[in-house]
Design a protein around this nucleic acid. Structure first.
Length: 910
RNA sequence: GGGCGGUUAGCUCAGCUGGUAGAGCACUGUGUUCACAUCGCAGGGGUCACUGGUUCGAGUCCAGUACCGCCCACCA
């Protein structure tokens, strides 16, 4: 016998183990060898991470799809794995070393440090896997992959080498986004623009050959900057070629303040006369726009900063070249060398002010680039880095979406995808980190680069080049984490080997992910998939929203508003959490999660549990060979139809990725159709004298409950699996798991007659209950009911359902006749129901109630009249709409007439 | 500057192709031994942001306005 309430904590672990022991998650099961495959690759979580609400949503949706397709008979592969997450993981381990007061990374050295990260990975790498299991994820764990596995690393090397040979990967010296805290380059995507309060500094640059006089504007040119500390790297001042104010100065020089370097005034369209003074200092080594200007004009690139963001003036030939080593300069170097950039800014501003070189300072709000991981202000820095020619790879990836070979759901994300892909910039893939895939490039003694999959290969290339064996040295850098993630859909399937899995499951069917990684990940998988597999990596991309807290705030540790999914699982069960997330996953909307919602769905699980308990108590056991289409009892024919309708609704909704609709449909069916009505309505039959009707009803109740368990299973796998096992016929042990059972087919079980009859029954009971409540008839009181004006249909329905009506409407008698004076009257179709409550109820109140009803129907009739009197409506609206309105009017008028009669009768009693 | 989304019941949100506004929570009243108080029954609550247009008919389509949010680019 089932317990009174469902206690998820007690069974979830056991059920998950049972699934695993049965090998139920495995792809490529022999009996499905000829089945159509269905494949999803998991967005690999960080190997050292732990489950947050975003994971919970993402993986719930995947599991819903995967379980659904598995039940539909497909050979399902849900490919799991984890990501090495370069910077993030390296940071975690470095912080750990610091907290434990152990030697830091530099002291440890590269090999020891990496060893340390691997150890940490082994220790904590399966935390997230365990957490996904708690959520109920049915991944094929036997195929778990890690981006730094040997196999996947081989794929990375091969891709790098092939792209290099195709000219799609190259090394270049240019400005990159440099993170002075992490001491690595990062890609454009890892830079966050943050609005910051700063200043506009208007600096006076003295014109060469004129004696600087702060009171004489013709002796200097004003340049405006937000970053005065970069001035030591200035190599020109630019003005617009058409700017009349400065035309006469073009070709002349200015003397760079403090430094004394002579730099030219040049004309370049980049300079905007509307902005600032119209003259702009050009610092090619420290600003992306200036870099371009510098290239156009052949300006020297003077890098004046160290990787850490300190001014680097000596030893720095860039800086000292061509400048008189005056005592002033020497003292400048002494003063500024090694000073951090923001301290240097203050000092420079101070000195310029002292020398009358500061025209003015304005407060200014502008966006400043920050590293998304370190939160440090990013420094554009001139370095050698490896780049992917993304623009070339993007072309087929754009085309594939344009031609519908891959479809985004919701569709409007395609706009975002196109916009980014069409403006894509070279992708900087080298990182000055230790944790990651080391770049497969080696250098000869003269710095010549040799790219090969391994050292032997590179050595061979070098030997060929130099004509003799030479010592080669490996590139120290590692690749951007997303480089390996981009290969995920095929590297996990065994590429570059031609494995059976690769042939069977690629391209995958659908990718489920959040919009925040469309650029980082989805776009790059598209590019790499098309380049190396010559086929898109997935047919559909379902983009889900962000999970926010109940106030709509993004969850973050610093805000302290993080809701821990594991806490919710502990409190309410995994099923409740999953159902909540699925039910709230309407397309294109953020999810504001509140605990009360989870609680509500926990209650839903309990409700289902108790329905099953009812079935158990009443011997409603699944009958093998039971055919729902053979049902004779109207109630059973009706519920079979409802179940079929629900199966269709759930199926269609999941197919269209409308998870919330699917969840809503099954919720409504179980609670408000099966429990609220069907189980209540069958009680008299189960207790009644008609043994065959009772037997059929027991079978149907069990059958429909099974249907409900099947339909609910993708959303609530644990409780449904448990009930499936518990409800099995004791003699006929239900050997198979629910998760491997077949999905219900929406067979043609609907029956219009049964629907009409049970619809009438429900309406009658509801109406009587409503009136009782309104008239304050005590719940325990049983009253008689007299039906007047009943048609043959109504008479036979009453005969069939009399006991049920009496029970659910709390009646002590039910007969046909004439309404008594002072009775409460209800109009139902052609009949009038009378509750002879004279003496119990207030006739005045009842008269008021009837008048309100009459008014309501009256205004409806008025509306319909107006519509039908409208020539244009009748002539232009479709026939069936007009007909519907006419019918409605006829019915309303009939009801109105009966209500009037009822009122007359009532008033006669006064 | 470019793009996307939102504005519907007290709260959180559904409402797909235009045809009588829905759910959950909260609220009010009530409680009939026998599935369930993590429950039952009954109920109150909405000029669908605003303005105009298309249409016989608009929460739904179109244009604009206001406010909110996000993304991309740029900012001397």
């Amino acid at each position: 016998m089932l317990d009174k309430t469902y206690q998820p904590q007690r069974i979830e672990g056991d059920i998950y183990r049972a699934w695993e022991e049965a090998g139920a998650f495995a792809s490529g099961r022999p009996e499905r060898a000829t089945a159509k495959p269905f494949a999803i690759v998991i967005p690999p979580p960080n190997v050292t991470g732990s489950l947050h609400m975003g994971h919970a949503l993402n993986n719930t949706l995947q599991d819903v799809l995967v379980r659904f397709e598995r039940m539909r008979g497909r050979d399902v592969l849900w490919q799991p794995g984890t990501d090495h997450a370069g910077i993030a993981t390296q940071m975690v381990v470095e912080r750990q070393l610091m907290e434990r007061q152990e030697p830091n990374r530099r002291v440890l050295g590269r090999d020891k440090f990496i060893e340390r990260v691997w150890k940490w990975k082994e220790e904590s790498g399966n935390t997230i896997v365990g957490q996904l299991k708690r959520l109920g994820c049915s991944c094929d764990w036997s195929r778990l992959r890690f981006t730094m596995d040997e196999g996947l690393s081989r794929a990375v090397r091969k891709v790098f080498v092939e792209l290099y040979r195709a000219g799609l990967i190259y090394k270049d010296k240019r400005l990159v986004n440099w993170d002075p805290e992490l001491l690595t380059a990062i890609s454009d995507l890892e830079v966050e623009q943050i609005e910051t309060k700063g200043h506009l500094w208007h600096l006076r640059y003295p014109i060469d050959g004129r004696r600087f006089d702060p009171n004489d504007a013709s002796t200097y040119i004003v340049v405006v900057t937000t970053r005065p500390e970069t001035m030591f790297g200035d190599t020109a001042v630019a003005v617009h070629p058409d700017d009349e104010r400065y035309k006469h100065l073009v070709g002349k020089n200015v003397i760079l303040p403090l430094v004394g370097r002579r730099i030219p005034i040049i004309a370049d369209e980049y300079s905007d006369p509307e902005k600032g003074s119209g003259a702009v200092k050009i610092t090619p080594a420290h600003d992306f726009n200036d870099f371009e200007v510098g290239k156009r004009h052949g300006l020297p690139m003077v890098n004046i900063m160290s990787p850490e963001g300190k001014l680097l003036l000596d030893p720095n030939p860039d800086f000292t070249r061509g400048v008189e080593p005056t005592p002033a300069l020497r003292s400048l170097i002494l003063e500024f060398n090694g000073v951090f950039r923001f301290a240097a800014r203050k000092m420079i501003v101070h000195q310029l002010e002292a020398q009358g070189l500061m025209e003015k300072i304005e407060p200014y709000v502008h966006t400043v680039p920050h590293g998304d991981r370190s939160n440090a202000v990013i420094e554009p820095r001139l370095t050698d880095q490896w780049y992917v020619d993304a623009a070339t790879l993007a072309k087929p990836a754009i085309d594939a979406v344009k031609r519908g070979r891959t479809t985004f759901v919701p569709k409007n994300w395609e706009t975002t995808y196109f916009h980014w892909m069409e403006n894509i910039q070279p992708w900087c893939i080298s990182r000055q980190l230790w944790w990651g895939h080391q770049i497969p490039a080696w250098y000869g003694p003269d710095g010549k680069v040799f790219v090969a999959e391994d050292e032997e290969g590179a050595a061979a290339l070098a030997k060929e080049h130099y004509g003799k064996a030479v010592e080669i040295k490996r590139d120290e850098d590692v690749l951007d984490t997303w480089f390996s993630s981009a290969l995920w859909p095929f590297s996990t399937l065994g590429w570059p080997d031609k494995t059976p899995e690769l042939a069977r499951y690629y391209p995958t069917d659908v990718l489920i992910t959040g919009f925040d990684i469309i650029f980082f990940w989805v776009a790059r998988m598209m590019m790499m998939g098309l380049q190396f597999m010559e086929e898109v990596p997935f047919r559909d991309v379902y983009i889900h929203a962000l999970v926010r807290d109940e106030k709509g705030q993004k969850m973050s540790k610093s805000k302290g508003n993080v809701i821990d999914p594991l806490g919710l699982i502990d409190g309410y069960g995994a099923d409740a959490l999953r159902f909540t997330l699925a039910a709230m996953a309407a397309q294109g909307r953020d999810i504001k999660l509140s605990e009360s919602r989870v609680e509500g769905y926990r209650n839903f699980a309990t409700k289902l549990w108790n329905a099953a308990r009812f079935a158990q108590i009443n011997d409603c056991v699944p009958q093998s060979g039971f055919d729902p289409a053979s049902a004779k009892v109207t109630l059973n024919r009706w519920i079979a139809g409802e179940a079929g309708r629900t199966a269709r609704a759930v199926t269609e909704a999941i197919e269209a990725f409308r998870f919330n609709e699917a969840a809503g449909a099954i919720y409504h069916f179980i609670w408000h159709v099966y429990c609220d009505w069907y189980l209540e309505l069958i009680k008299p039959i189960l207790a009644g004298a008609d043994a065959s009707a009772a037997a059929e009803t027991r079978a149907m109740a069990a059958f429909v409950l099974d249907q409900a368990l099947l339909l609910l299973h993708p959303f609530m796998p644990f409780v449904t699996e448990e009930l499936w096992a518990k409800l099995a016929n004791e003699t006929e042990n239900r050997a198979s798991l629910l998760m491997l059972a077949l999905w219900p087919k929406a067979r043609g079980l609907e029956n219009a007659e049964a629907d009409a009859e049970i619809g009438w029954l429900i309406k009658l009971i509801s109406d009587v209950r409503s009136v009782r409540s309104e008239m304050n008839v005590p719940a325990a009181a049983k009253v008689p009911l007299v039906i007047a004006g009943a048609s043959e249909t109504t008479r036979s329905r009453v005969a069939a359902h009399g006991e049920t009506i009496k029970r659910l409407a709390r009646l002590d008698s039910l007969e046909f006749g004439r309404p008594q004076a002072g009775a409460v009257q209800i109009v139902l179709d052609e009949a009038t129901l009378a509750l002879p409550l004279a003496g119990i109820i207030d006739i005045g109140a009842e008269s008021q109630r009837l008048k309100r009803e009459i008014d309501k129907v009256g205004s409806e009739i008025k509306q319909l009249d107006a519509k039908l009197a409208n020539e244009k409506f009748v002539s232009r609206a479709p026939e069936h709409v007009v007909e519907e309105q006419r019918e409605r009017k006829t019915e309303a008028e009939a009801t109105a007439a009966k209500l009037e009669q009822a009122l007359k009768r009532l008033e006669a009693a006064l």
